[in-house]
């Protein structure tokens, strides 16, 4: 604690005094100092600008059919085939790992991305991490499903430079079918972020027949049009992963076998965004 305060006094910070006061308050409270993660990926280049370290938090309220990271669903550590999935880390430990690549963030305009799972399911820890990053002038991104409490969002908002916000399906019924949750709260949270001038990038996974339909993409485009300035949309190409990964976690892989759309098809299908003047990019 003493060391941290020392650091706070001596570190040059870029943010304003209101934020500083808030940090001190949080530090005093000694909020959650550990979290469960399942991976730290250095040299990530598709999770926000530049070269990034992406931290994958364990636990997700959604159960998307196409999920790549079924190991991220349960919030508990699991032992799979003799390997423990999930590690408990402290703020300081994680910070040390993040700071290791500082030179790459600085050269590339990169930083750190908190992803998952759903990072905001462990919001107080993420907030503590974000604050540490901002103390160190590291760009921060939070990759969220949006299915989180408003309080969580409110906590991290002042320290998050970029939200990577997953928007899968606009139709609430279909959303429930394919992800296990309704999108009402998700859309509400997205609007909250826009209302609070957060920088948001919309991420849509390209899942043929589910998210990747003309109807869904046009609906999303029409929905996003009302936000000014229009957020950038990233279409994330989908690669089918083997069912074996699912079997290991005792989760049923519901994804039907489908042809992966090529670049041209994605371009064509996403014309609605361009029509609405919404910047759209294939890939993160």
């Amino acid at each position: 604690m003493k060391a941290q305060n020392q650091e706070l006094r001596t570190t040059k910070t870029r943010f304003d005094s209101a934020q500083r006061a808030y940090i001190q308050e949080i530090n005093l409270k000694q909020v959650n100092k550990s979290a469960t993660i399942f991976n730290i990926q250095r040299f990530s280049v598709h999770d926000g600008p530049g070269i990034r370290t992406t931290v994958f938090f364990k636990g997700c309220p959604l159960a998307c059919w196409w999920c790549h990271n079924p190991e991220g669903r349960s919030s508990e550590n699991e032992v799979i085939n003799g390997n423990t999935i999930g590690t408990i880390v402290t703020v300081d430990e994680l910070m040390q790992e993040i700071l290791a690549d500082r030179v790459f963030y600085e050269e590339s305009g990169g930083g750190v991305t908190f992803s998952g799972g759903e990072p905001l399911a462990q919001a107080s820890f993420v907030k503590a991490m974000l604050m540490k990053c901002k103390e160190n002038n590291i760009h921060t991104a939070v990759d969220t499903s949006g299915y989180v409490s408003k309080a969580s969002l409110r906590q991290v908002l002042p320290f998050t430079d970029l939200f990577l916000f997953d928007l899968k399906i606009l139709d609430p019924v279909k959303h429930l079918k394919y992800t296990d949750v309704s999108n009402t709260e998700i859309l509400d949270n997205l609007e909250y972020l826009f209302a609070n001038n957060a920088t948001v990038r919309i991420r849509i996974p390209v899942i043929p027949g589910i998210t990747f339909t003309a109807e869904n993409l046009d609906q999303i485009a029409a929905y996003l049009r009302k936000f000014e300035p229009h957020p950038e949309v990233n279409l994330l190409p989908f690669h089918r992963i083997g069912e074996s990964k699912y079997n290991r976690y005792n989760i049923k892989y519901k994804m039907p076998v489908q042809k992966e759309p090529n670049h041209e098809e994605i371009l064509k299908m996403s014309s609605g965004f361009r029509r609405e003047g919404i910047p759209v990019k294939i890939g993160g």
Partner: peptide
């Protein structure tokens, strides 16, 4: 490609 550029610079 951009990441490789920045790896070199770093």
């Amino acid at each position: 490609k951009t990441a490789v550029l920045h790896l070199i610079r770093s």
